[in-house]
Write a protein that binds this DNA or RNA. Structure first.
Length: 289
DNA sequence: AGACTAACCTGAAAGC
DNA sequence: TGCTTTCAGGTTAGTC
């Protein structure tokens, strides 16, 4: 489940394989839910273009091209982006249980039915693949100057800016604080897992009405979000987000997500799971008020 | 406007 | 054993 840290790690790993390279060949699957731009258009327009940079806003990756177009990518739930040479494979996304598993790094990647985009580059070298089993990810090619409602709707990136004043933003809002954290137009990049983890750090119960948070709680909340996200990037992005806990050292830093019934790491009280805004929310009933 | 729900997608896991 | 149901979640669109 890629959230901001996984997307940022993917960005960093992919950057050297994309930036400065000229697209020589494009393969896609047939048109489907992942394509906001028809695959035939991608196959026609991408070859010949060089990639200027790879940027991230929230959970989106944006690659500006030399003709002013922009390639927009979103990993959705199960999306993976990685580069692969001919002999061995380096998985470059930490999502969906694919990345960091050593046995898979050498498995040799063969594009399958879920591999929706394959980019070859001039001069050879590693190719770049976009794979997404559940097709909740997105691929879009924006024309020069074309705006994207998806991008423009986004609020401040959860890591980069000082962010909105959460206290001001939440006044009068009856929705839960958890719902507001997941609202990408308020703060871009936080998903279900890190929202729960940040709420635990801030000691705020996810069901609390956002409009009732004090100034101090809002400050704590924003600080906790940043801390959780930064920490996850430092440790490789997989330890917190992978519910199986099988990947990425340290083994498991999750405090609450996916730990319903297990003892709180602070006070031993069993972690509870409730549904908030249609999403699962995990919290310690004693530590979080 | 804000809040809630359904829909998109598919594989794993639970239920029968 | 094998079939059916449920669940997971990021995001948008539609409804109230």
């Amino acid at each position: 489940m890629p959230e901001l840290p996984e997307v940022e790690i993917t960005r960093r790993r992919l950057e050297p394989f994309l930036v400065g390279r000229i697209v020589a060949g494009v393969e896609t699957t047939r048109d489907s839910y992942v394509f906001l731009t028809r695959p035939s258009v991608l196959r026609r327009r991408l070859p010949g273009r060089s990639i200027l940079s790879l940027e991230r806003t929230g959970k989106y990756l944006v690659a500006p091209l030399d003709n002013g177009e922009r390639l927009l990518l979103h990993l959705g739930m199960t999306g993976q982006l990685f580069a692969a040479g001919t002999a061995s494979v380096r998985l470059l996304s930490s999502t969906a249980g694919a990345a960091l598993a050593p046995d898979r790094q050498t498995a040799g990647f063969r594009p399958d039915a879920h591999t929706h985009l394959r980019l070859r580059f001039a001069g050879g070298g590693p190719e770049v693949f976009f794979r997404d089993v559940r097709k909740l990810g997105k691929i879009q090619l924006l024309r020069p100057g074309e705006s994207s409602p998806r991008l423009e709707r986004l609020g401040a990136d959860a890591l980069r800016s000082r962010g909105p004043d959460l206290f001001d933003v939440t006044r009068g809002r009856r929705a839960s604080v958890k719902t507001v954290l997941l609202d990408q137009s308020v703060l871009a990049g936080v998903g279900n897992i890190y929202a729960d983890e940040a709420l635990f750090l801030a000691r705020i119960r996810p069901t609390r009405r956002a409009g009732r948070l004090s100034r101090a709680e809002c400050r704590r909340m924003v600080a906790a979000v940043k801390r959780v996200l930064r920490r996850s990037i430092e440790t490789g992005g997989a330890s917190v987000s992978d519910p199986s806990g099988e990947e990425g050292p340290p083994l498991d830093e999750r405090r609450v997500y996916g730990r319903a019934g297990e003892p709180c790491r602070r006070c031993d009280t069993p972690i509870r799971r409730v549904v908030v805004g249609g999403r699962s929310a995990h919290f310690c009933p004693r530590c979080q008020r």
